[in-house]
Design a protein around this nucleic acid. Structure first.
Lengths: 233, 233
DNA sequence: CGGCCAAGTATGGTCAGACCATACTCCAGA
DNA sequence: TCTGGAGTATGGTCTGACCATACTTGGCCG
């Protein structure tokens, strides 16, 4: 009835075949794909279609193309989902398809989870958190502060041991960078935030999961007071 | 020093310009972008480069291209980040850049959050949950069961009111579909899972946030016993 | 006058072929 | 042995053409 079959385009065939090849041939990160011309001939499509497919894969962080010649040239399998996630969120925010509220609520969820799990990790802190805190003390501009703030929170997510959660955190902070800078400028003094960071850090390295979760919750309320003051806006 | 400037490619310029135009001109979902030929002339690049950029935007769920003529033809701004997220996760899993463990832990985080927030929502259930439960009772194959199971859990995430969380949930379940089917087949009997669903559903509609969170936690432990039996694998 | 069908046209989809820039490979010559 | 230049495979880009699709237009016929 209302179905829209929409015949599959050539580049979509290429995508299917490449993904299939990755699965069947057990290709791994670092392996090379055939050249664009060769791929075009194998799949009986034009080079333009192959390029469109490669562009999609590059967008998804699955391949990385290098010009020139030699073992490093050509389309190489990688795995960098971070920029794709970040682009996705940034554009969705730009199109107002997501509200800042939703993004920040999601961030709170991830921060709480990360802090708890990081605190439960047997290994000591990965130094990245401490380094980011040091850098924040020396920051002079809001931009600089936010940069290190992002590094600090990403370090927590990474300390949780879950790369997917860490990737989402990085993408969230990346997409929100502009709003974070505005928020810091509105606050004026970053003393409260830095004190929060110390509390979070201390709770994590001392293995206090509940305290770490509480500390990040307080922290976000300080950073975005307008979103956490009321009940359910 | 070790920088790799890598001169920006033509399609990247197109991406920048289009994103800039979205922000500056305040374009919204539903608005049309200029045609490929026109865009190519405006930005002084070839149509092939424009097409590569549009392919990227399509991958990110930002535009949707329709052939033909008329008001609905051409590149239209949309906002469907779901398939992009799903592709991203599926390919990352395929490249073993993410472990199933990480994905399922992330899923548990989202399920717990969604269940709590859905239970706190003033509105009653959105019927989608109940409908999915009914459909699960009638399922005969593992594939069919998983399909409705996905709908059930996505409905919970949507009931939380956060579209970003719901989108991530949908993408996670999509990317994991294959593993979920295997898990159901390994289990054999889905009675335990269906009983779990009832508990989750009841807790949510009765506004019992703690009970809902507990129910989803138990549910995931039932669905993936091998991942939750030991301490820290 | 009104409805219907055919021609026109704008749009994306695809292809072929060419040329450029880049960066490695290889070999000849000092 | 080292060095520099020629060779070459790779992605990056452009041009121009043609096809398929689906709306738009206008004229024909009832």
């Amino acid at each position: 009835m209302a179905d829209k079959p929409r015949r599959t385009r050539a580049f979509e065939q290429v995508l299917l075949q490449v993904e299939r090849r990755i699965a069947d041939d057990g290709l791994r990160v670092g392996d090379r794909l055939p050249g664009e011309r060769q791929l075009a001939e194998q799949l009986q499509v034009s080079r333009a279609s192959v390029r469109e497919a490669l562009r999609v894969l590059e967008t998804l962080g699955v391949v990385s193309s290098q010009v020139g010649r030699g073992p490093d040239a050509g389309a190489i399998l990688t795995s960098r989902p971070d920029s794709a996630l970040s682009d996705l969120l940034r554009l969705s925010l730009g199109l107002s398809s997501l509200s800042l509220r939703e993004v920040i609520d999601t961030r709170l969820m991830i921060e709480q989870w990360s802090a708890q799990h990081a605190a439960r990790m047997p290994e000591p802190e990965p130094a990245a958190m401490a380094e980011a805190m040091r850098a924040m003390e020396a920051s002079v501009s809001a931009e600089e502060f936010v940069e290190h703030d992002i590094a600090f929170h990403v370090a927590i997510a990474e300390a949780s041991g879950n790369r997917l959660v860490a990737a989402v955190m990085r993408a969230l902070r990346d997409a929100m960078r502009r709003y974070a800078i505005e928020a810091v400028e509105r606050l004026g003094d970053t003393g409260v935030l830095r004190e929060d960071h110390r509390r979070i850090h201390d709770a994590i390295i001392s293995g206090d999961a509940a305290g770490a979760m509480d500390a990040v919750t307080t922290h976000l309320a300080h950073a975005y007071p307008e979103l956490f003051s009321r009940g359910t806006p």
